[in-house]
Design a protein around this nucleic acid. Structure first.
Length: 197
DNA sequence: AGGGTGATATACT
DNA sequence: GTATATCACCCTT
């Protein structure tokens, strides 16, 4: 497996550029001996002061402060009291932009993921239910608030090149779960991939 | 379709 | 300090 990090400069672009470009890249989470990884298949872009449904819209708060860090920083938040969501900050410091990871196709550590999600080991066939949603990904990968503020240039969590996705198989749609403001086609996903939510 | 879940921000005493 | 509304979700029917 390729272990070359994507350069941090990759994340210092607009969220609308980074979100589709992340499709087909590999998310790697390293826990000592155990490596968990998967291919990113669905993302959503969130911008700053011009995006009413972004956490950053009303400026910096205790929860979202890491969203105002420089591109290449990890932003984790808890939603509905139960689930964590994984985001990568994009652009420059104080932009308040990020990309939410919504769908991942598991590659390494499937048995551990299955245990994290359902509390059982086993060699059952890969279930799309494992990682087809932002909360599910964090549960499967064991990502919690302790990853908030980590840099993607480190070894705990990072992104590598996996596979080139042809432009035709990248589709976009409106974002999910959005109730505020004007909605845009800022959700990106790989056509007909099983792990899209 | 409907409910569980509790952290978070904001607006009040 | 308390109260209330609001969630970038998941699971079960």
């Amino acid at each position: 497996m390729t272990l070359e990090h994507l350069p941090i400069s990759f994340f210092k672009n607009d969220a609308l550029t980074v979100a589709p470009a992340l499709l087909g890249k590999r998310l790697v989470v390293s826990k000592g001996e155990v490596i968990l990884s998967g291919m990113i298949v669905e993302t959503e872009a969130y911008r700053g002061s011009d995006d009413a449904s972004s956490h950053a819209y009303n400026g910096k708060t205790q929860r979202n402060s890491n969203m105002f860090e420089e591109g290449g920083t990890v932003y984790i938040y808890m939603i509905y009291g139960s689930y964590f969501c994984l985001n990568f900050v994009t652009g420059n410091k104080n932009d308040g932009q990020a990309v939410l990871i919504r769908g991942v196709e598991p590659l390494d550590g499937l048995d551990v993921m299955r245990f994290n999600r359902f509390g059982v080991f086993g060699k059952k066939p890969i279930d799309k239910n494992l990682t087809n949603g932002p909360g599910k990904i964090c549960k499967a990968f064991g990502i919690d608030k302790s990853y908030n503020g980590e840099s993607l240039s480190g070894t705990k969590i990072f992104i590598t090149n996996e596979k080139k996705i042809s432009k035709q198989s990248i589709l976009s749609s409106s974002r999910r779960g959005i109730t505020k403001g004007k909605e845009h086609l800022w959700r990106y996903y790989i056509h007909e991939n099983k792990f899209v939510s």
